[in-house]
Design a protein around this nucleic acid. Sequence first.
DNA 1: CGTGGGGTTGATATAGTTCAAACTCTGTGG
DNA 2: CCACAGAGTTTGAACTATATCAACCCCACG
Lengths: 238, 238
Amino acid sequence: MSESAGRMPERQETLATPMRAFVGLERIASVAPYRFGESIYFQDQPADCWYSILRGAARECAVNEDGRRQIVDFLLPGDVFGFSNGEARGLAAEIIAEPALVACYPRHRAEALAEADATIGRGIRKLAFESIERLQRRALLLGCNSAMQKVSAFLLEMAMRCGSISHEPIALPMTRYDIADYLALRVETVSRTLSALCRQGAIALVGTRRVRIIDHRRLAAPGTKFTRLPPAQQQCCA
Amino acid sequence: MSESAGRMPERQETLATPMRAFVGLERIASVAPYRFGESIYFQDQPADCWYSILRGAARECAVNEDGRRQIVDFLLPGDVFGFSNGEARGLAAEIIAEPALVACYPRHRAEALAEADATIGRGIRKLAFESIERLQRRALLLGCNSAMQKVSAFLLEMAMRCGSISHEPIALPMTRYDIADYLALRVETVSRTLSALCRQGAIALVGTRRVRIIDHRRLAAPGTKFTRLPPAQQQCCA
DNA sequence: CGTGGGGTTGATATAGTTCAAACTCTGTGG
DNA sequence: CCACAGAGTTTGAACTATATCAACCCCACG
């Protein structure tokens, strides 16, 4: 890995605030450190626990028969995940940025608490609804038809979720491969599109894993085109 | 519309079982009939209620700045939806098959009930988790890279959700345009792909709005190719 | 009988995949 | 210390699946 092998850039280093990380369930949480590449749970494993990322980042993904990996969600500090009715999960969760700290909430105990304490119950519903909204946004993102729109929407989403201050560069804890699997594109396309955005002056790449968003408008604009070869009039990014 | 303008084919005519339709919340539900094309709620409207489809079908969709419509979810009898934390929804819900019957659960009263009655609280969590799983399956579906895979996965999902008996034709309550917007494809591509599946003998079209799945395996196979023009050796469907 | 929405099919253009190569950075081992 | 390997990233050239544009059919409905 070209940039600090899976180590989380500083902007992400903040621990999730206790409030976001499951009010009232602290007492049944078991917190564990994870290393880069470790799995929090596996595909087709029983869904006994809910989880939340306290530090680091993870991906929720599936590998289908033809070996292609699909990433359904990136999980950042504060995100709660692993909700399921079924006995087995269809997805695996893996750490992509260390040092990572993950809280685990045994499902039956959590459900019992939710039923005993109305506040906790409400909190859990709220978190589940957050998952739903994140997944809906993701569906909208995947529904974009051009690579340009997908990558732009992805950058804006990451900026929003990282709570970045307007012109601070946002940290991407994932590789280009991860982004490609998330957007249902090829690595090459992701790379080319980022380069194009850079040439157009919409973003600036700080190293490979940080992006400074320069022109929010242009990113949000639907008509943004690829423009494979602009006759080199705008200066490229550093 | 070529086939009975938005009228739901019979297989869908069953009312959602009371159990699936929100145990215990019947007393605060207001049930209303809807007609084809009517909106249950609008994009950017406050999210005061949860809903469930009792009869008919609906789509949850967004229209973005460039006028393109994206369908995030198809809603069939028994599906509960409209969950949100935010004040405003990002999505609209519209009836696509009549006669439709929709139950509406005022959010604050429903939340109060959930907090007062543990069983109801658990029921709501379960429904929210169902939403999550449906959206995750959808993300996986959209992550497919070929039109063939998308359409195949869509048909299998519809078959599953309609609870169809193996060789009974499944009813598609939506138009080709809806399917296209759901899969992030063009109508023409959806149509061509269905025709191709038909030529290959994987499915049979019964009219335009019913599909009999003949070869489950072939649909599920990842390697399925488009084969634009097989030299007309297999007989086409009726 | 004409109109319009939905559906299918064909021809062409193009965005994105695929294959290939080179570069950077990190870590490892002589 | 240098050589080397490997993962991640970028760029180029060719190919191909899908979008796009256009024509047509079918049926329901006024």
